[in-house]
Nucleic acid binder design. Structure first.
Length: 360
DNA sequence: TACTCGTGGGA
DNA sequence: TTCCCAAGAGT
């Protein structure tokens, strides 16, 4: 015989009771009785996209201190926002964050819309984030489906369709669970549960308030859900970075194009990042300035979402007659004034240990 | 639809 | 070491 389908009423009651005792204390969560601040809810949701709570906390504190309200963020320079975002990754989020703040401050008198369609029309806000803000900040009956809620729901209903194809069905089931009362708490409860109990590996079903309703747990196979298609292997790409130093110790930097990988961030100039290894001589043809390029020992490795990168550093002391396009010279002690992504910080660290006569 | 887009932590 | 994974969005 088939087990009964999980009962939404029971799931809601069990989960919210659990949440009242076990909710995590997070910087962006308002205290009971306080009205939620849509700005803080929005900011946290953008930062948390594909990013762990631990990674976000420090950035959230920094942003809310520097820019306490959406109007403050709207008035900031994009470069300052990118700089503050440095290290958090997915830099299009920072550009869209700034754009969204300006739309809110400029066209909506600083007030966030409170419905999913209006929210979704704003830059950087998609299905998930629109539903999350509507539920958490505005108490709307909306169903955000992130990876946690997707996993919990797939297990609860033992949905074995492979992702990403099976997403729609999971999302539909999830929306059946959402209560009219406390929809924001319910969503956050599911996320806390997914993060701490109903984990991807080795879920702790004995500690889960939903185990009595959970079809996957009933099968003793919670970990099997959701079923995902295997990801393609990450290829390796190679590049050569030019560490050009002037006599006074300043190093050449430049700004990356606005779109694409690390868009708008600052970098040390380099060749293309391609599938073939570079020879020093071949790479030198792409150098931004003339110089006697010498190859440093060792490589800098960095992994992006869809490829591994291996960078080799070429150094030269240069005397500049004509400035390269978009040139930006800075002593290492001034690097912190620039929005350097993590991969470029690795380059700077590598150079500091290996460039002869390196001085900060 | 299927890519692109960062980074760090944990198994 | 390597792989998986994370409060997804844009194109």
């Amino acid at each position: 015989m088939t087990p009964p389908i999980p009962d939404p009423v029971s799931v809601r009651r069990r989960l919210l009771r659990w949440y009242d005792r076990n909710a995590r204390d997070l910087p962006w969560r308002y205290k009971k009785g306080d009205p939620p601040d849509p700005y803080r809810v929005w900011l946290s949701e953008i930062m948390l996209q594909q990013t762990t709570v631990a990674a976000v906390k420090g950035y959230f504190d920094d942003f809310t201190t520097r820019w306490p309200a959406v109007g403050d963020l709207a008035k900031a320079e994009l470069n300052d926002v990118l700089h503050a975002w440095q290290g958090l990754g997915y830099y299009a989020r920072a550009r869209n964050l700034h754009k969204c703040a300006q739309a809110i401050a400029g066209e909506r008198a600083g007030r966030f819309p409170d419905t999913e369609p209006e929210l979704k029309a704003l830059p950087g806000i998609g299905d998930y984030t629109a539903a999350a803000i509507a539920a958490i900040a505005f108490d709307r009956r909306a169903t955000p489906v992130d990876a946690n809620i997707e996993r919990v729901t797939a297990r609860l209903f033992a949905l074995g369709d492979t992702l990403p194809k099976g997403r729609k069905k999971i999302s539909e089931r999830a929306s059946l669970l959402t209560p009219k009362n406390r929809p924001g708490d319910f969503a956050q409860a599911l996320m806390d549960l997914g993060a701490g109990v109903c984990t991807p590996k080795a879920p702790d079903c004995s500690a889960c308030p939903l185990t009595p309703e959970c079809l996957a747990a009933g099968q003793g196979e919670a970990e099997r859900y959701p079923v995902k298609v295997a990801k393609a292997a990450r290829p390796v790409r190679y590049g050569m970075v030019f560490w050009a130093v002037q006599g006074d110790g300043r190093v050449l930097l430049r700004q990356r194009p606005e779109k694409g990988l690390l868009g708008g961030m600052t970098e040390f100039p380099s060749t293309d990042w391609r599938k073939q290894i570079w020879s020093s001589a071949e790479a030198a043809k792409q150098a931004p300035v003339k110089g006697r390029w010498r190859r440093l020992d060792g490589v800098v490795r960095h992994t992006f979402t869809h490829f591994h990168l291996e960078l080799t550093v070429l150094t030269a002391e240069v005397a500049i007659k004509r400035e390269p396009e978009g040139a930006l010279w800075s002593k290492p002690s001034g690097f912190s004034d620039h929005a350097l992504p993590t991969v470029m910080k690795k380059i700077a660290d590598h150079a500091s240990r290996n460039v002869p006569g390196y001085s900060s």
